[in-house]
Design a protein around this nucleic acid. Structure first.
Lengths: 97, 97
DNA sequence: TATATATTTGACAAAACCGTCTAAATATTT
DNA sequence: AAATATTTAGACGGTTTTGTCAAATATATA
């Protein structure tokens, strides 16, 4: 599956700071080929990579995690009629705890 | 990965109505072996199956979709620090549209 | 109990997905 | 323009996931 969205986001972040893939790839412990594919949406960015990614890109971890999650939910459940209700339901559940 | 939650839910639904796997499997166009594994969490239930599933099990589609989505989000993002904020963010976005 | 029905299991091949390697393509610097 | 650095693409083997088949278990019924 080609998802692109989050990949192109981190790519634009990286480019805006003039960091070569070499550096980011090393921080994620993959090679530049894999990172390139992640940026182009041909490989998944794992949620476990968000901490290292935020660090090496010099952005706020919180913001990046939120970006990642919202993007994933948008993608996974695009067009599902009761997504809003589902989000409310899980929020209620989380607020209780 | 063994996720179980939603699988055992539809299994209990099916059993409470005394519907054999044969019927449900046919509605989903898989064989009973696959359905058995879905119920036991050894195969994924696809979101695209929810309509047929609701119909054959005689339950409300809305409720079942919500159940599916909440379960998946809980599973995918368990332990992520800013999940609540991400949910709020995507809700804002959806309410605007 | 014997028989039929339902469910689960394990083996299997097909498909999807992964990260790496190599080399080509592209961009940047000197 | 040449040299260097960066990014992308394709091929590859390895791993994971998939659905089916056939056999093994479990459950229900005559």
């Amino acid at each position: 599956m080609k998802s692109v969205e989050f990949g192109s986001y981190i790519k634009s972040l990286r480019e805006s700071k003039n960091i070569p893939q070499r550096i980011v790839a090393h921080a994620l412990d993959v090679d530049t080929s894999t990172l390139s594919k992640m940026e182009l949406g041909e490989r998944q960015v794992l949620i476990s990579m968000i901490p290292q990614l935020a660090k090496v890109l010099g952005v706020d971890f919180k913001d990046l995690q939120i970006k990642y999650i919202t993007n994933k939910i948008r993608l996974d459940f695009k067009g599902q009629k009761y997504l809003i209700e589902a989000l409310e339901s899980i929020q209620n559940e989380l607020n209780k705890k």
